[in-house]
Design a protein around this nucleic acid. Structure first.
Lengths: 248, 248
DNA sequence: AAGTGGTCTAGACCACCGA
DNA sequence: CGGTGGTCTAGACCACTTT
């Protein structure tokens, strides 16, 4: 039974209820759900409310529907519970490594062509460059170099220092959580396998020529403004990047 | 003005209309759209119809909304027009290379532990293994080894031979378009940078030890059933994998 | 207070599917 | 044919933001 007076929207409650039934197995794979009109009657809500709940569950991949037949529970995917943005800390912990982060430096730079294009700002605009080293059991595993517009950047650096003083490991992802006024909406990332050059080999403590994963990220806010341009380099033997996405 | 009698749903027509206005610049970045109620009046549709159109455009990242303020045009992202699943052929053409595909082989195998887990089938189930080589200007650039459940697999192999006989380059992505009864809904992929071992070095014509991008893919259909398990290896110097996704 | 988006109702007609 | 999801209407009340 849903609580109509609650602060939680009805369609959310219905979603949670159905999600629970699927997770516990009360609704098994390929099982047909009650029809939309039946759900209306069962939960005493209108069809729009039911449809909003079902639509979002289809979007999340938990249900699928066929016109004229009904709505069904999707087969669970292996990684259904995997987080979508792999957080640094849990990734290392799951490998049994003690995570830590070091701030290599923060400085002001002026935007070169690449940064200016990515961040949609004029050439030579002032940027804050924050470089971090991710460690697992004191061994370097990842190197980050992030560029922020000035205003966001100073706050990011502050947030990073705060995290560091608390002895918590983090990446720039985590720092966004410390700045509630800046919330990322989407990312573009490109993945490249590269061979370590002398500089990166030195930083990550591997032999030159060893494979590294190079990820270039642009973070965008809700209004479509870019808030960060970042290069990340991961030791290939320590890192695997996993992603789930709609086809087509 | 929308055509109510048309086969195209009203909210689709509205979406297309707004999308057009954004693309042509009639609605610029950060510009406020008419309120939902105003759009109702302008287009002579109900608020639900307007909301469905707006919701989908927000979902696609073209608009953003703020409670109490209004709906706004998002800043365009650099890669807004980029396709989400990078097709082999256009990737190479954009680099000025003539793409081609070779079928290295197709054979029946029985599922080992890894394949069985990924495809959610019993151990030792019969699978079709299709191996392809992607070429650019006659040089190998990518190696694919895909495993399909028997039924789908035979059709895939047939589709591949047909494509080949037409002299078209393709990957297994493209083959799904030839099988309308099997339509992928989502993918999971993991990216790893590896060093070429002797076998891969031989296949891809690079020196052993050179970096390669190794992508492991599982393709899922609408009902959540896996339809393919695939290992792909790309020459790192020829390939860059690009992706856009929601944050969080 | 007025306007915005967020949620919700109670109807309606259509196209698709199975018996 | 009856039941299903897909689309749509014309209202309603709420929470949030700005004036």
């Amino acid at each position: 039974m849903l609580s109509p007076q609650s602060a939680i929207p009805l369609y959310q409650q219905l979603k949670d209820d159905l999600r629970e039934k699927i997770k516990t197995g009360a609704l098994g794979p390929d099982e047909r759900l009650p029809s939309e009109r039946e759900l209306c009657a069962q939960y005493h809500v209108s069809r729009m409310t039911v449809r909003q709940a079902l639509a979002e569950l289809v979007n999340e991949g938990l249900l699928y529907r066929t016109h004229g037949k009904g709505t069904f529970v999707a087969r669970p995917r292996i990684d259904q519970e995997l987080v979508r943005v792999t957080p640094f800390e849990s990734t290392l912990r799951s490998k049994g490594l003690r995570p830590a982060t070091k701030i290599l430096g923060s400085r002001m730079v002026s935007a070169d062509y690449e940064m200016a294009t990515a961040l949609a700002i004029p050439l030579l605009s002032p940027l804050v460059n924050l470089t971090l080293l991710g460690l697992g059991n004191e061994q370097p595993v990842a190197y980050y170099s992030a560029y922020f517009p000035e205003k966001i950047g100073h706050k990011m650096v502050e947030a990073a220092r705060l995290r560091l003083s608390q002895g918590v490991s983090f990446t720039t992802y985590d720092l966004y959580n410390d700045l509630p006024e800046v919330s990322p909406a989407r990312l573009t990332q490109s993945f490249e396998a590269i061979a370590a050059d002398d500089r990166l080999a030195e930083i990550l403590q591997v032999s030159p020529g060893k494979p590294l994963m190079h990820i270039t990220t642009v973070v965008y806010l809700e209004d479509g403004r870019p808030s960060e341009y970042r290069h990340s380099y991961y030791r290939a033997d320590m890192y695997r990047f996993h992603i789930t996405r709609p086809a087509k």
